[in-house]
Design a binder for these strands. Sequence first.
RNA 1: UGGGACGUGGCCAAGUGGUAAGGCAUCGGAUUUUGAUUCCGACAUUCGCAGGUUCAAUUCCUGCCGUCCCAGCCA
Length: 562
Amino acid sequence: MSDETRLGLDFVRQWVKDDMETGRFSPPVVTRFPPEPNGYLHIGHAKAICLDFGIATEWGGRTNLRFDDTNPVKEDVEYVDSIRQDIQWLGFTWEDREFYASDYFEQLYEWAAFLIKEGLAYVDEQSPEEISQNRGTPTLAGKPSPFRDRPVDINLELFQKMKEGSLPDGAMVLRAKIDMAHPNLNMRDPVMYRIKHAHHHRTGDTWCIYPMYDWAHGQSDAIEGVTHSICTLEFENHRPLYNWFLEQLEIPHPPRQIEFNRLNLSFTMMSKRKLLDLVQKGLVKGWDDPRMPTLTGIRRRGYPPSAIRAFVTAIGVSKTDGMIELSALEYYVREELNRTAPRVMVVLNPLKVVLTNWPVGKVESLPADNNPEDGNAGTRTITFGRELYIEAEDFLEDPPKKFFRLSPGKEVRLKHGYIIACNEVVKNTDGSIAELRCTYDPDSRSGEAGGRKVKGTLHWVHAADCVEAEVRLYSTLFTKRDMGDIEEGKDYTDYLNPESLTTVRALGEPAIRQAKIGLGYQFLRHGYFTPDSEHFSPEVPVFNRTVTLKDTWAKIEKRTEN
RNA sequence: UGGGACGUGGCCAAGUGGUAAGGCAUCGGAUUUUGAUUCCGACAUUCGCAGGUUCAAUUCCUGCCGUCCCAGCCA
């Protein structure tokens, strides 16, 4: 192979390529995405999904969806439904290849019996505590179980008995007979089966013994003809065991496990356990809370799947355990939405403006382009009149230098409308600003040839027809950049951001009533927003802020403060 | 004091013996009826550190340092 073809491939893709070129495997390339149905998928899983499905597609191969349902006490159908939906939303399909580790329980059982007959597995009657105790430590070899060397026929008999159901949970386990002094703890006679009298969401009460991950995973891969079993770094220590089982069973073209770095994102955490905890403690409103890193949360937040895919491609794959800045994700979300999101004007914090030289009762229609980035997006009509609302932050009585928004005696353009000048500030008795009295320049209508230029352009809404909307503004759920590095004595809830959600009553142009769930809209000069999938209606528009626009002015302001 | 893996700019990440791609971020500047977008430009004499081999090392060798993972009948 030439050097050029090597360039740019991440190491996983490179290894797959090498395997196919050296003939370690013959086509097709088969991968699998193996979620445990015990929680919702998050953006870290999106990286794995893009890799698993992406690589197979690149080789004209296929990817199986296989639920790793070997622990009935933690798993539930609620999760399998959400997982299916999330993968599809991300844009991938497994066609009819939806499998379950539990589909293979019978085969696994037979293979286990085979290993017993080969003298490679035994039934252990030690208590869980004893097993743990006798496993040793990283620096101390383990002690062999007193049951380690019992005869094959007794093992077979006991294993049968484990399966039959007369034994209580924990009474005995089946263990692989490898090496109690192995430096890799996973090789110290790992447990293959445990007794659990639990109802399984698929196999019901057929089984009371369930295979452990290590015993089920590689064999399931083998059964499905998987060539490349791609998983995250923490399974590196399991690879010797993965290979050991395959070898003892003499699987002809054993699948190859490849481990890559999982995604860590700043200001968020991916621990399924903690995500569950957030939901159960009511610290967020559910798995689909727009602040959650779950795919369902992100979807409700308005992140387009194409942006997630672009992001995953951009961050790459390696074996370095690092952390990606949130800003990188947000960049790809903005990039997609900038191209596709219709523009609309919404004032989040209204300040009334009266145009004193505009005739009372006169209303003028103005054309407004829907998306300057998209020539096919067309225009809509908005209305303009005597009373308007602008953003309160766009007016300052005593402006700093380079503030090219509105202030007394200054003028700005109202987007798609006219240039106005501020003449008078009307105040309430408490000194706060009640409204602005301004004049408009009749010769400055938007688009008119020879129009004057002013430095600032503001968004606004017409008081006569604007509609009220609830807008939910989100920021990071946590205040700490590295949520994997929590101080002694603290726990992740100590870093919850009290300002992760603020809700405002906003005023928008009438078009926001027609917003479609699942689509993104740019609220001019604010950011990208999407109708809330649960609460939005044309009568009561509710929007979630997906991401803000980049805000250079805010940056400058912040800099001068410090 | 064991084993496995990883250390390239603030964050990712190519490159793996011939003199440091790219993206995000940051900082300038141009354009702009979104302080957005777009566009130009700047941003590692250096690849965890120290030695060694070589005409030449981020790439090879040795030693050291740092980080992550492993002692579930979880996955």
